[in-house]
């Protein structure tokens, strides 16, 4: 899922400084699961902002809504009838949701209330970690199910660099070396010979180097 975390309240307060009536929009998708932008976080952020504004003596009216998803047009339509009643929308969905709101409601300023960090997993309650950089050309079948693009700080595809030491990455002693993990995995699977397979030079146009990406499925279009 997409993982995010709340922006510092001071940063949010600066964005909405001149506003007196805002819509605070959460999302029931990924950001609910990673506790950054769901219904509960809408409530907490709304309370925190209200306290700050009361403290400043500048009244602020906040309407709290949490949409099923902010990355699908049908759910964004649910607020069409009330959007014009507010000066701005503060969205705590991921960056995709914030932008889709801006595209949908072109005359209403949209502010982001969270930072979108990565595509990752819940390692344990309260701990999330990155696993995918959405490069658009999955190589996990060649690397024992461990992504070298994501787990190696240099995204190396054919073994570790000289910065790998006692299984850790030189970038951060807490970070496992991606290629050490791939080696250990192949060993567990009993197929260390897989390390001899050379992964050819990557065509990064399927990743960010090709500009914003888009998928069109004619079979699904209405």
């Amino acid at each position: 899922m997409v993982i995010g975390e709340g922006k510092p309240i001071k940063e949010i307060l600066a964005m909405i400084e001149d506003r007196s009536k805002i819509l605070l929009a959460g999302c029931r998708g990924c950001v609910t699961v990673c506790c950054a932008g769901g219904e509960k976080e809408v409530g907490i952020l709304s309370s925190a902002i209200s306290l700050a504004r009361q403290n400043q003596g500048k009244a602020l009216e906040i309407k709290e809504v949490t949409l099923e998803r902010q990355c699908d047009p049908e759910y964004l339509e649910e607020i069409r009838s009330i959007v014009d009643d507010y000066e701005a929308i503060l969205s705590i969905a991921c960056g995709a949701g914030v932008q889709f709101l801006a595209e949908t409601y072109r005359t209403t300023p949209i502010y982001p209330g969270i930072n979108t960090n990565f595509i990752g997993v819940t390692q344990e309650q309260g701990v999330w970690a990155e696993r995918c950089q959405s490069c658009g050309d999955c190589k996990l079948h060649l690397t024992g199910g461990i992504c070298p693009i994501t787990r190696c700080a240099k995204s190396l595809l054919n073994g570790p660099c000289g910065g790998s030491s006692t299984g850790k990455c030189e970038v951060d002693p807490e970070t496992d070396c991606g290629w050490q993990m791939i080696y250990d995995r192949f060993k567990e699977l009993g197929c260390l010979e897989q390390l001899e397979v050379i992964i050819p030079i990557t065509d990064w146009t399927t990743s960010r180097d090709g500009g914003p990406r888009k998928i069109v499925r004619e079979d699904l279009k209405l």
């Binding site: 510092p8 001071k10 907490i44 925190a48 306290l51 700050a52 403290n55």
Partner: peptide, 8 residues
């Protein structure tokens, strides 16, 4: 921490 941030 939140209370510190909002000035309470």
């Amino acid at each position: 921490k939140i209370l510190d941030e909002v000035g309470v």
